[in-house]
């Protein structure tokens, strides 16, 4: 009985008794979730256009952040450093297309997945050879003051930085949506995502599209890198966020941009609530696997994720 009580009753009693604390936990999770979504977005973009499960997205985040910090340390002003880093990510996308994707065209998605893991090792070594491997501080001038938000006669503590992150995330998604729906190249991207062969038949160059898509997800990686780097320093562990983005992805559906956002929020909030209310009961640090188990259980009921395309099998 006591165990049942500890697991199924008292956490909810706690939530009801201290609503402000609960709101803080949710807000905290919400903002972490947005950061996950930023990483997951890069995955989705590439998966949609080339059916490649890009494991290297996490290390691209690290690489972008390392490049930015490295440039800053050498006295390049922030705005210029960001510009140069975007350029570097585009160059990287071109190199990846030329060296890795083109020879592997028409291979099993599985092989491409392994190739992106190879790319992960390569970029990790490359970034750290260029810029060194010690932990760096990234400061792009986002304020980090605590804010007190009135809530039902009480005050809730929020960090201004997190609000900025949320704002930037929203702008990013809006920008991507506009890019996809209002520009010619965006339309071409959607065409490729729908059907490679049909897109090629109407004269869309797959190679250009791949370069564009990898560049865009490089830029998304840069934004994610700036946010994560400013929050927790630029270091190797940044590339491990990729592992955190995976459950987000499958929860939301591999092919859906809104799915990446909603999945990120669900995982972010669920993880924080689980850790705060249930974590102490089982010894803590459940953040490591909670997201995966959540995604696993969810997939049992909906194998294609929340917004993924229905998986149709034909024989």
């Amino acid at each position: 009985m006591e165990i049942l009580n500890a697991f199924f009753v008292s956490p909810f009693v706690d939530m009801a008794e201290y609503p402000v604390f609960f709101a803080e936990v949710v807000a905290n999770g919400f903002l972490t979730g947005i950061m996950y979504s930023l990483v997951a977005l890069g995955f989705v973009l590439i998966f949609k256009a080339s059916e490649t499960f890009n494991f290297a997205q996490g290390v691209m985040v690290l690489f972008a952040a390392l490049t930015l910090v490295g440039l800053q340390e050498r006295g390049v002003p922030t705005w210029l450093a960001i510009g140069i880093t975007v350029g570097v990510m585009v160059l990287l996308a071109m190199a990846i297309e030329k060296v890795m994707l083109r020879p592997l065209v028409n291979q099993d998605p599985f092989i491409l997945f392994m190739a992106t893991i190879g790319l992960t090792f390569f970029l990790e070594g490359f970034g750290e050879t260029l810029w060194g491997s010690n932990v760096k501080r990234l400061d792009v001038g986002i304020p980090e003051r605590p804010l007190e938000v009135p809530l039902g006669g009480d005050f809730m503590l929020l960090n201004e930085f997190d609000l900025w992150a949320a704002g930037i995330g929203a702008v990013m998604v809006l920008g991507l949506a506009l890019f996809f729906h209002r520009t010619t190249i965006g339309r071409a991207l959607r065409a490729v995502a729908d059907d490679h062969q049909a897109a090629m038949a109407v004269g869309i160059s797959l190679r250009t599209i791949w370069v564009v898509v990898w560049s865009v997800s490089g830029v998304v990686a840069l934004v994610a890198g700036i946010m994560w780097g400013a929050k927790s320093g630029v270091q190797f562990s940044l590339s491990l966020i990729a592992l955190k983005a995976l459950p987000v992805l499958i929860l939301g559906g591999l092919t859906s941009v809104p799915g990446a956002i909603v999945g990120g929020l669900i995982i972010g909030i669920g993880e924080k609530i689980g850790e705060v209310y249930w974590g102490p009961l089982v010894g803590g640090a459940i953040e490591n696997w909670f997201a995966y188990v959540l995604a696993l259980i969810f997939l049992l009921f909906r194998p294609q994720g929340l917004f993924g395309e229905r998986i149709i099998e034909r024989v």
Partner: peptide, 17 residues
């Protein structure tokens, strides 16, 4: 160590290709 990582990653891609 970093260069080892690079070579390792590069070799994996090379082998897959």
């Amino acid at each position: 160590k970093h260069i080892e990582l690079m070579i390792f990653g590069g070799l994996i891609i090379f082998f897959l290709i």
